[in-house]
Amino acid sequence: MIEVSNLTKRYAGRTAVNDISFTVARGEIVGLLGPNGAGKSTTMRVLSGFMPATSGTVRVGGLDVFHDSDEVRRRIGYMPENNPLYPDMRVREYLKYRARLKGLGWKKSRDRVQTVMEQCGLTDVGRRVIGQLSKGYKQRVGLADALVHDPELIILDEPTIGLDPHQIRTVRALIKSLAGKHTVLISTHILPEVEMMCGRVLIMLDGRVVASDTPENLQRRMAGGSQVIAEIAAPEADLRAAWENLAEVLQYDLTPCEGEFFRCALTPRDGKDLRPLVFALARQNGWALRELTRSRHSLEDIYVQVTKPATEEAE
């Protein structure tokens, strides 16, 4: 659905997007993740046909977004950053206006507006003035606008920013329901959102794509470094000796807990699962074992690790 090859976008003296390439298949929900200023919004603006690329090509549905701009725009529903709306218009009036601008006929636009208003839960506020709506409702109006011409590709720039947890949940459910029928590209810097909604993640940093995979694969890739946490009641010297002698343990860290317990954080060599070994050891020595877990890297850890150099430089 989307083919981006060697896309570069330079603003006066600053490179916002630097030679990125990626593809998105039809029906996928892809999350564009990255810190502020990583080039997410710029990429989306180029995709939506609002701005041309400095170099490289962007194709949507096989059509070049610059040369076949009209046809591409008809296939894209785009919600820009901060969800700009006309505060003086009423919800239904606005959606109808937008549908007409997107080339729908009079009757078609009326039907589609009705459909998207139901889909986005806006039927109760159809006659309200947009400027007086709560942020959650405004966001849904923006989404309804992106959906109104039933586009193949939906591009949402930070769709859940500034919403309360309940509203975020509603918006997420709505986006998730679009999977399969539409291709969706979402940008965000909220990690759980990506884990919940997206089939694939593109992590951007300084105008480049630094990682691209499913959330699960990214986690698996990181699992090599995952730690085992064991809370064991034993004399400290015995524990230290045990971990020193265990060849599979690369590193360990002991923290005394209440009573006789120690919290041991063990880093395995070669990504081996240490849990059976720890259990066997505890049984052998008759130690009391009250917790044994392997910490999985969340997307957050991956994200922090991938984007680390930039953060440190910035500091």
């Binding site: 009209d70 725009r73 785009y78 901060n82 006309y86 601008l101």
Partner: peptide, 13 residues
């Protein structure tokens, strides 16, 4: 200023 220029220009106009 309101950003609606972007939404306007990304329709079929």
């Amino acid at each position: 200023a309101a950003g609606t220029f972007e939404t306007l220009m990304t329709t079929s106009v």
